[in-house]
């Protein structure tokens, strides 16, 4: 018998210094992971980037198109130069609105969108970065009853981003990379039991 899953979505946000952490997480993430994973990274616009290929470590990672449904077992990367939102029917929609926190994609927007659609069933992880994008979004997830994890600032290449989340609201759980990996493995095991 499979228990109902505690979480329905995992959103991961990162900026400067987050690539190597992300690579490690993706390397260790149980595959297939039982819930959709959505990654938001700050990146350059209007340049051809191979970021999706770079991150396709154990399984292919795709940039979603507008209206694409979120599927369990898939890992998605927010495309450059758009905000990535989630609709209540479980599909993505893209938004070309003004940058938020100087960023497009903005982590705050995807995190907030996950919080409003999945509420307590959302899980957010905020990694290393040199600005404060993502902090408000992670707190939205926590306020909605979900779980918010920040990379422990002393282990982050740039501590501003995870620290901003920890300072902004109670309930953000700081974790080392190993801590996060263990946590994510547990989710996957809980699903199988």
């Amino acid at each position: 018998m499979t228990l109902p899953l505690k979480y329905s979505i995992l959103v991961i946000g990162g900026s400067a210094g987050s690539m190597s952490v992300l690579v490690e997480l993706l390397n260790q993430l149980p595959s297939p992971f039982p819930i959709p994973v959505v990654i938001i990274l700050h990146r350059l616009k209007n340049v051809e980037s191979e970021l999706d290929k770079l991150l396709s470590i154990r399984q292919p990672i795709a940039e979603p198109e507008d209206k694409e449904p979120l599927l369990q077992g898939n890992i998605y990367l927010a495309p450059q130069n758009y905000h990535l939102l989630i609709e209540e029917d479980g599909s993505f929609s893209l938004d070309y609105a003004e940058p938020v926190n100087f960023s497009r994609p903005a982590i705050d927007l995807t995190f907030s969108s996950a919080a409003s659609v999945f509420g307590a069933r959302s899980l957010g992880i905020l990694l290393s970065g040199a600005n404060k994008d993502g902090a408000a979004g992670l707190c939205r997830i926590i306020r909605a009853g979900g779980k918010g994890i920040a990379q422990r600032p002393d282990t982050a290449g740039f501590s501003i981003m995870p620290q901003a989340a920890i300072d902004l609201c109670r309930g953000v759980q700081p974790m080392t990379i190993k801590g996060m990996i263990d946590f994510l493995r547990n989710i996957s095991i809980e699903n199988k039991s």
Binding site: L85, E87, E88, S93, A97, S113
Partner: peptide, 9 residues
């Protein structure tokens, strides 16, 4: 309209 963006607007 797609609601997620419009709500935000």
């Amino acid at each position: 309209y797609a609601p997620a963006s419009l709500k935000r607007r």
